[in-house]
Simulated assay, not measured.
Amino acid sequence: MIDHAHDLACVRDATERLLTAAAKLDNAAVAEPSRLPGWSRGHVLAHLARNADALVNVLEGRPMYLSADARDADIERDAPRALDVQLTDVRESAARFARAGEAPADWSRTVELRNGVTDSASRVPFRRWAEVELHHVDLGIGYELEDLPQEFVRRESDFLAERFLGHPDVPSLVIEAEGGPVLRSGRAEGAAVTVGGRPADVLGWLCGRRDGSALTASGGPLPALPPL
């Protein structure tokens, strides 16, 4: 069972870690490339702020974004801002998300995200937690996949394995992260490829942050996963 209150607390903790780490940057560093192709660190920080507001929209029954073009334009507009402006925006938008999460609500209701994707409202806080943790890594400022909370690594790996379940371009997969539960993903039919490795490497492969070269694969080659 998903505990949205627990996940909201985890979002707050993750946001504080990110803000504390990013505060050590300067304006020049914010303009430098992040680990995401084509995005500076400013793009990542701008996206985090706008994503918080977008998830407030989701929780309050509005469209997540006006459009894909509007989402991209907002990030491009906000990316060049100075560090202090970026951090204030991330902090204030996070506070708006926290307030929306604290409001009385039916957490079992279904909400709509981007591209027609639907989910339980109770999973929105976890989705935000994933945004904060993974984009902290994307900033390239010393926070690595190995530094992520173990609970998050386990749950996000499970979430992503479920996301690829039944995907026509992903072969049947058995995923065995060291010390974790066995996960199944990909197509239901066909011989399964068994993938194993350290939890951080498994998550990195599933979320497109690592190429999988540190993983083992038996029963077939390690497949290239579609973009998220």
Rank of each mutant, 00 (worst) to 15 (best):
T194Q: 11
G38Q: 01
P149E: 08
L45E: 00
L148Q: 07
G166A: 11
A103Q: 14
L83Y: 03
P63V: 10
A28Q: 12
Q150C: 09
H43Y: 07
S185D: 12
G208H: 05
R99G: 08
W39I: 00
V58M: 06
S122P: 03
D69S: 15
E162I: 01
M1Q: 11
E16P: 01
A54I: 03
S40D: 05
A121F: 09
R77G: 06
G219P: 04
A29V: 08
L25D: 02
A224D: 10
E156G: 02
L145W: 06
L66T: 14
L222Q: 09
A161P: 04
R17M: 06
S185Q: 10
N51M: 13
M64W: 06
W205L: 07
G140Q: 01
G190R: 13
S122C: 08
T88I: 04
L59A: 04
R109S: 14
A22N: 02
A73T: 06
S218G: 07
A224L: 05
G180F: 14
G38L: 02
R127L: 14
E32M: 14
H136S: 12
L160E: 03
E32S: 15
V195T: 11
L87E: 02
F97P: 00
S122W: 03
A130Y: 00
V111F: 04
V137R: 02
A130H: 12
A192L: 10
D26P: 03
F97K: 04
E92Q: 08
E189T: 14
F152S: 07
E178I: 09
A70F: 05
G220Q: 10
D26E: 04
G101W: 00
R114S: 15
L8P: 01
D26Y: 04
S172H: 15
E131W: 03
A224G: 04
D13C: 14
R12N: 10
E146A: 15
V153T: 13
L183V: 06
G220E: 12
A82S: 04
L19R: 02
P37N: 05
P37S: 11
T110V: 14
A103R: 15
H135V: 08
G196W: 11
P199Q: 12
A31I: 05
